[in-house]
Design a protein around this nucleic acid. Structure first.
Lengths: 209, 209
DNA sequence: TTCACGCTGTGAATCGTTTCACAAACACTG
DNA sequence: CAGTGTTTGTGAAACGATTCACAGCGTGAA
């Protein structure tokens, strides 16, 4: 119903709106939000329309109300625990990043095969042995997971997660995961990002000549 | 000239082609690459056409030649050093990830303000104090950088990098960076990725009902 | 040599997203 | 209370990317 692009942008809008609210502003215009988000005012208005919120022509959008409308779309109806597979540097970055961030979406279980890490609490999150993965996922009713393991281990992690009931994955490994229909995968491909940046950084400079 | 989507995909194709080559295959059809990359054969053919390579109707694409054609587009003409700002968990993940990966694109300098890290070599990369940033960037002729610092420090890091000559950024901080025209920024927004996954994981399940 | 098959390259159609452009709405001013 | 200026909401146009569909070609078989 709502496109992935719109979902991505309203997530950004919400973050910006919280900054705006923190400054004490109660209203915001589409062109202000657009400037902050790096898109056009028409895009903001279209996105806001898509999620069914309406502003006022005179005052723009009510910041608190718009945050609530976005949250009604983005936030799960009740608290959802997220699993993290792989507690290397990247995994720890994710843990420290998400700790205490959102009450609705939080990493509640980490998995690693390193005996040094297993059964320890890292950034407030318990690290379980990989062998317990299915059991913990099922017990906790976990539906989403972050895969932060080396490429060679990613497919197997995905398979086990999905078999235990996970149907949404954020994948940092540079491989395309094979998952059944109905499982949503968001790939975060850093190599691709870097190669793209290197390419367009060069292109843009050439344009200037 | 070539769209960012195509650039992203050919980066993925190259990685897949290297796997194919490692298996000893010398030729590959568009439908095979499409299956591996998770897109359509027509998409693969269109992308290959865009970068100016041609296959044979009978044998498909020559793996080695296609890798070379993609590399001719993606790889900088000569070795390019990349800077990394922020050597926390995420920064170290980037270092260990890119170490020895590509001879053409490598992280050659890291910056952090923590005196514990400064002047040490981490994953083969020297960590400099943030104060030396402009000087090191200029001396090394660095054009791209990865920003892996907390949100509050990201904009200032970007400003300093750009002022020293960087015109391509991979930004992990959850803020929109303000940069002059001609600077290309690729945002890697993990919060957005996770919220999108949570949303679509829910949606897909609902579809099934 | 001829035939049949299956793949590539690509013009044209399609699809989804973004932007335009303007009517309607509201606040403020005098 | 009418006039002015600015903004929203949104149908329609424009744009960009993807997919279709098929002509043309090379290969292997007979």
């Amino acid at each position: 119903m709502v496109s992935d692009k719109t979902i991505g942008r309203i997530s950004v809008y919400r973050r910006l709106l919280k900054e705006v609210a923190a400054k004490g502003e109660t209203n915001v215009f589409s062109h202000q939000l657009a400037t902050m988000a790096g898109c056009t005012p028409a895009q903001v208005r279209r996105d806001v329309m898509t999620i069914g919120y309406s502003g006022s022509p005179a005052r723009g959008y009510d910041v608190a109300e718009l945050i609530d409308s976005i949250s009604a779309v983005l936030d799960p109806p009740e608290h959802e625990g997220i699993a993290l597979v792989g507690v290397g540097n990247l995994g720890r970055a994710m843990l420290s990043y998400f700790v205490g961030r959102s009450p609705r979406l939080a990493i509640v279980a980490a998995f690693d095969e390193d005996p040094e890490k297993v059964n320890r609490v890292i950034h407030g999150c318990r690290c379980y042995p990989v062998n317990d993965m299915e059991q913990v996922i099922r017990e906790r009713g976990i539906r989403e997971a972050i895969i932060a393991v080396p490429a060679a281990a990613a497919q197997d992690a995905a398979r086990r997660l999905v078999s235990a009931g996970v149907n949404g994955l954020v994948n940092f490994a540079p491989v395309r995961l094979w998952v059944p229909d109905g499982v949503y995968v968001e790939n975060v491909d850093v190599t691709m990002a870097l190669e793209r940046v290197a390419y367009f950084a060069r292109e843009r400079v050439q344009e200037r000549v």
